[in-house]
Amino acid sequence: MLYRHRWLQVLLLLAPPTGWFLVVYLGSLSVLFLSAFWLLDPLTSAVVHTFSLRNFQILLGDPTYRTIVLRTVGIAAAVTLTDALLAFPIAFYMARVAGPHARSLLFMAVLLPLWSSYLVRVYAWRVMLQPHGPVESFLSAIGLPNVEIGYSDVSMWIVFSYIWLPYMILPLYAGLERIPRSLLEASQDLGGRGGITLRRVILPLALPALAAGSIFTFALTLGDYITPTLISNSQFIGNVVYDSQGVANNIPFAAAFAIVPVVIMAGYLLIARRLGAFEAL
């Protein structure tokens, strides 16, 4: 009987997941974004439920917040670029050089850190970067005793690049693997040396995959607050949002500031879609 009523089947299958999603997730998001237009009464610290753009005026007007947004976006961009550079050789090796056995080993080696122990991997860097820690002794061993990385924007750049690197390697590997061998051979037959083939054939064909990977590296950096608090003393969008919510208890302002990375990401996704990133995910 059920088989004949297809709409009933669809309804039965879909009602639980969409119901959950609408109520728990989209409902919560609406509550949050709605509260961005409310205000905190400075005297009573109570949320005033009247529509206002005051939070956004503060965000746009105060140069402190502009600096924080620029720093966050700048580091996210630097991390994305670094990860693209680091990911390319290993992804290329996995896709075009390694045999099947080495390839599956490498795939697993990249996949494991992607899915597990985000916090532990950040913590490991905190241990490495501490005074008299492994990084310091490594730097003085190679003759750079006075270079200080510990807990700065530089350390944040290194650690973010480290944490999100697998998210760049895997899409890029998949993208490079899809390039037909015949195109590379054609380029060589036509006199394209390694460098030219790389620049004129491989890179343009790998661009959608690079864009796909960059969505992760950029978005994940933009929204993070754990790494900045553990690795540096700099203010990041995530920290300010977290402190406004948890320490200052100013949920309307936290919500307004949390919209900033979401808007930036929406813009980024539009560009990435132009580059064909969604087909390469």
Partner: peptide, 21 residues
């Protein structure tokens, strides 16, 4: 697209939204 949002949007946004609710 909708199901991947909680992974794609910053965790802090999901967290704050749930916290508010």
């Amino acid at each position: 697209f909708a199901l991947v949002l909680p992974l794609a949007l910053p965790g802090i946004v999901t967290g704050m939204a749930l916290n508010a609710t």
